[in-house]
Design a protein around this nucleic acid. Sequence first.
DNA 1: CACGGCATGATACGGGTGTACCAGGAGGTC
DNA 2: GACCTCCTGGTACACCCGTATCATGCCGTG
Lengths: 201, 201
Amino acid sequence: MNVRVDHEDRRRQIAEALLRIADTQGLQSASMRAVAAEAGVSLRLVQYYFETKEGLLLDALERLGTQLQARMARWITEAGSPPTPRALVTAVLSSILPTDPESRRITRTYAAYYTLVLSDPALVEKHGTPQPDLLEGFLAKQIRAAQRSGEIDSGKDPEMTAAGLLTMVNGLGSSVLGRQRTGDAALAILTHHLDELFRTA
Amino acid sequence: MNVRVDHEDRRRQIAEALLRIADTQGLQSASMRAVAAEAGVSLRLVQYYFETKEGLLLDALERLGTQLQARMARWITEAGSPPTPRALVTAVLSSILPTDPESRRITRTYAAYYTLVLSDPALVEKHGTPQPDLLEGFLAKQIRAAQRSGEIDSGKDPEMTAAGLLTMVNGLGSSVLGRQRTGDAALAILTHHLDELFRTA
DNA sequence: CACGGCATGATACGGGTGTACCAGGAGGTC
DNA sequence: GACCTCCTGGTACACCCGTATCATGCCGTG
């Protein structure tokens, strides 16, 4: 039964068990033993494929990032072709909002990692998360394009507007996870602000 | 040395030790023993004044809420008398932003509690945190007042605008804590959006 | 066919966790 | 002065943690 197994498969199986626990019970419940049980393997196996727990956490975080990236890419392609700047901005922002099970899962898991990074900033540097800045730049670019075509008031500052939208979506997500607002209510707030931004001034 | 000591004093001493640890090392490092050492008392004392750890966590969270409330109140009184709606909105929002040591401490500690609440929603219900909704209502009220005096375009939806501002500030705070942005940069983004909102349309 | 390395299992170790138990000293009350 | 309640210290218990160790099976290669 022991044919040279595919390491990548095993690693994925275990890392996704970790992510599942982080989503449902939080990272503090994701002990090595719990991950092993969730993945249906022995504790030793988890140790074997990830020498240390930090390695497992980092690997899982990377996979989570890939999942979010894939989700955004999917939403972007669904924005039509060729996509208008407005469709792109809407797709990117609402793909982050926890409105459906997948995005709820991703957002919740990211939140679980968030406090971990706060108490140990060195962790994220070993992994490199350049995403947020890139996203902000992308949004700013789309806003500038919309300004050229007259969809957005040219008086707006693209960088500031992009940063405001992105942080707003981030905050909206937090409030949804904290059960202070439903996902639909958050989406309504986002679309309201997008409508306001894109109305011809 | 054992004169009937003031329970409230001791409880505050211990709870603030917990908050200090939560701020600097995260809540996961705030064990009963660590709190005892930080407060300079024995483990038994912590147990004596807070029967269980959950009790200690809840009590400390309540005190943290009081501290934030006091901070906001202070900023509001500094907004001048009588304060303009714009000054009030600015005071409330920027008092939440982690720009000085006190607000950084409060925000960081709240963030430490955030994931705790995510993995155990029942926790916050024993404590009752009606703050966010109240704040949103307060902001909406100020926005309406500013609309009546012509400072804000009357076409804006007060509730939506208030929710957008509050969640944006929340997200800005997260990005500052995550070292993605400095506190000053976050404040600049906030004031930019306030300037835009309050320019006569 | 033998051998060496990959893959897996069971278990042990040292340490940290929250909580419970037992003991005793100080102060006010009868 | 006796007593009782408040306050504090030390320590033990049972459990969970991440990691390390030892052993054993299977496989492909020589």
